[in-house]
Amino acid sequence: MSHPTPDPIALADDIASQLGRLASQLAQLPPAQATRVIARVLDPDNGVFGRITQLVITGSRFAENQAERGTLPAQVWLALGRAANELNDIALDLDEHHVTLRHLANQPALTAGKPSAPASPVFGRRR
């Protein structure tokens, strides 16, 4: 027996809702568990961020095809292409930190000791 094909609009709405719930829960989690969730979300192979990036890339390819046919303004394709490129650049920036996050996520809870110094916020981006 085959599985019914889900309505893609309902699926997108459900995913958005679940991401909202995940964000709300993340804000309430203890640091060790929040780190595990963030590491999972940013997993370059199976994480949410990579899958969303792939979705935007797929949308950009669709928009390119439609723009070439004249059924979609070229500006939409260009905007989706820029978004896909930006998300991919961000994913590459985050990828270098994924090993650290995964390592921290797999460590047992830190024992009471000297806490590490907090990091200064960084507002610039490297290219």
Rank of each mutant, 00 (worst) to 15 (best):
T111E: 11
T58N: 12
R36I: 00
L22A: 13
M1E: 08
R21M: 08
D43F: 00
V37F: 02
L78R: 15
D93F: 01
A105K: 04
S60W: 06
A16F: 02
E86T: 13
A105H: 04
E86C: 05
A109D: 15
P115N: 02
Q54N: 12
V99P: 04
A83D: 03
L72I: 04
A112L: 13
F62N: 09
S120T: 15
A39N: 09
D93H: 12
T5P: 01
H98D: 01
N85Q: 13
A12K: 06
I57T: 12
L110A: 15
G59C: 11
E86W: 04
T71L: 07
A119E: 10
A91P: 00
R40P: 00
A34F: 00
A84N: 04
A67V: 07
R82C: 01
A23S: 15
E68V: 11
S24I: 10
V48R: 00
R61T: 10
T71D: 12
G70T: 03
Q107R: 15
G20N: 11
L26C: 10
G59Y: 06
F123I: 10
E96P: 00
N106H: 12
P121T: 11
L92N: 05
P31D: 12
P118S: 06
P8A: 01
A117T: 15
D89H: 12
M1K: 09
L78W: 07
I52K: 00
L19H: 03
T111F: 02
A91S: 06
P30S: 11
F49M: 05
A12F: 08
M1T: 10
S2Q: 06
D14T: 15
L78S: 12
A109N: 11
N106D: 15
T58I: 07
L94E: 05
G70W: 04
A105S: 13
P4C: 02
A16S: 14
A79G: 09
D45T: 10
T71H: 02
V122C: 08
P108M: 09
A105P: 07
A84G: 07
H97R: 12
R126M: 06
E68W: 05
N88M: 09
R82W: 02
L26G: 08
D95H: 08
Q18W: 07
L104C: 12
T58R: 11
R82F: 04
H98K: 01
G124T: 12
L104K: 12
N106F: 01
A105G: 13
A79R: 11
R21W: 09
V99Q: 13
L22V: 14
L22I: 15
A84T: 08
L87P: 01
P31W: 03
F49T: 08
R102W: 01
V56F: 00
A39I: 07
L110D: 09
D95G: 04
V56T: 03
T111V: 07
T71G: 03
L80H: 03
L87K: 00
P44C: 00
L80M: 14
L55C: 09
R40D: 06
R126D: 07
L11M: 09
Q18L: 13
F49D: 03
Q28S: 13
Q18H: 12
V122K: 15
A34N: 01
I52F: 03
Q66P: 00
P6Q: 03
D43K: 00
R61M: 11
L101M: 10
A23Y: 08
N65C: 05
A74S: 08
G59V: 00
D43A: 06
I57M: 07
H3R: 14
L19Y: 05
P44A: 01
L26S: 13
